[in-house]
């Protein structure tokens, strides 16, 4: 008898608690920046594509829903010729973001991707690539990589000596 009354009391005082339920979609939830939702491809501070098509995201993906093809542009930068994510398979685990050596692929707090037709869940590069840096500001892979690209010759990267003069025997 006592326990029944206690339960009723407990349920009753919940009426005065703060509500957790949101009136979605009229009311939008506030999600933390690191919430794992829709996947985007970002750009570096200079506006260049961050993705260098290294295939690490594809290899890390446990459901194998990322497919891409590497290519090299005339200025020496690697980029994905196509980049496809099949969101009907994606489990939003974030492993791709973790694997990405250039901060290109990022999961953002957007989950509104429902579709009536599964085919619309196949995102190509034009659907994924955004114009900003996303969560990780300031990183530019080619500044720290040894590879030369147009505008950044050998030895012009961060923490690099100028190229060796092969003809010099000086110490």
């Amino acid at each position: 008898m006592f326990s029944i009354l206690r339960s009723m009391f407990l349920v009753f005082i919940h009426l005065f608690r703060k509500k957790v339920t949101l009136q979605y979609p009229e009311e939008k939830p506030v999600l933390p920046a690191r919430w794992r939702g829709r996947i985007i491809l970002t750009r570096d501070p200079d506006g260049g594509e961050r993705c260098v098509a290294c295939y690490l995201c594809a290899a890390a993906c446990p459901v194998d829903c990322i497919a891409l093809q590497a290519a090299e542009s005339a200025d020496g930068r690697r980029y994905p010729e196509f980049f496809r994510i099949n969101f009907s398979r994606c489990i939003f685990c974030g492993y791709c973001e973790e694997a990405c050596p250039t901060y290109a692929i990022q999961l953002i707090p957007d989950f509104e991707m429902s579709e009536y037709d599964r085919r619309n869940l196949v995102y190509e590069k034009e659907h994924l690539l955004v114009d900003g840096e996303g969560k990780y500001k300031g990183f530019n892979f080619y500044k720290v990589a040894g590879l030369a690209i147009t505008g950044k010759g050998k030895g012009e990267g961060e923490n690099e000596e100028p190229p060796v003069d092969v003809k010099s025997l000086l110490p």
Partner: peptide, 15 residues
């Protein structure tokens, strides 16, 4: 064993 992209490589042709 780490062949990737199985569920995406042909998704643009057929889901």
């Amino acid at each position: 064993h780490r062949y990737s992209g199985r569920t995406a490589m042909k998704a643009h042709e057929d889901i």
